[in-house]
Amino acid sequence: MFTLFANNWSTYLSGFGHTIAGSVLALIASLILGTVFALLEVSESRALRGLASTYIEIFRNIPLLVVTMVFYLVIPMYVVKINGFTAGTIGLSLYTSAFIAETIRSGINAVGDGQMEGARSNGMTYVEAMRYVILPQAFRFSLPALGNQFVNLIKNSSVLSFVAGFDLMYQADSIAFSTYQVIPSYLIVGIFYLILTMPLSYYMKHLEKGGRKQDV
C-alpha cells in the first residue's frame, strides 16, 4: 500500500485537489442558493413559497447521481457544453442547496416571530430585519447542522467519478484498475476522505454539545 502510494502520489493529490475544489465551490454556491430559497420559503407571497418548496422537494427527492447525470449528458446536448467537473459541481450545489434551505428555514423559524415584530416596530424594513436581526441568529443556530451538510457534501462529491470529474474516487478507480491493487487503492482514498471529514464532524459534535449547554 505504501509503495502504491509512493508510485502514484501525484495522481492521488490531484484527485484530492479536485475533491476539495469541487466541495468548496459547491458549498459556496449551495449556501447562497439555500439561503435564497429559505428566504422565499418564509416570505409572505404564496407564489414564492410555492416556487421554493417545489424546488426543494424536487432536489431532495431525486438521487444526486441522477441530477448529476442529467447535467452531464442532457444539458450539453441542448444548452451549453460543460465538462464533468463543472456538471458534477453544479449537480452537487443544487442537490445540497435543497438541504441547506431546509436547515436555514428551520433556523429562521427557531429565531421566532417575536424578533421580527420587535425589529419592525423599531423602524426596520422587512429586508433590514432579516438581514441584520434574523439571519445572523438563524445561521448561528443552524451552524452544526450546516457543518454536517458540508460533511455530506464532501462525501457526495464522489459522484464526480461517474462523470470523469478527476476527483479522488476517479483517480482511485484509475489506479486500482491499472495496478489491480483494488482494495489498497481504495484504502488510500478512504484515508484522504477521512482527513477531510473526520475533523469537521468532530468539530460539529463539539459545537452541538456546546450549544446545548448554553441553552440549559
Binding site: Y72, V74, P76, N83, G84, A164, Y170
Partner: peptide
C-alpha cells in the same frame, strides 16, 4: 483521455459532445 465505467456511458458522453 476521459475514462468511463462502461461503453454505454462512454457513448452517451460522445453523443453529448463531451
Amino acid at each position: 483521455v476521459q475514462e468511463y465505467d462502461d461503453y454505454g456511458q462512454a457513448f452517451a458522453a460522445l453523443k453529448s459532445g463531451q
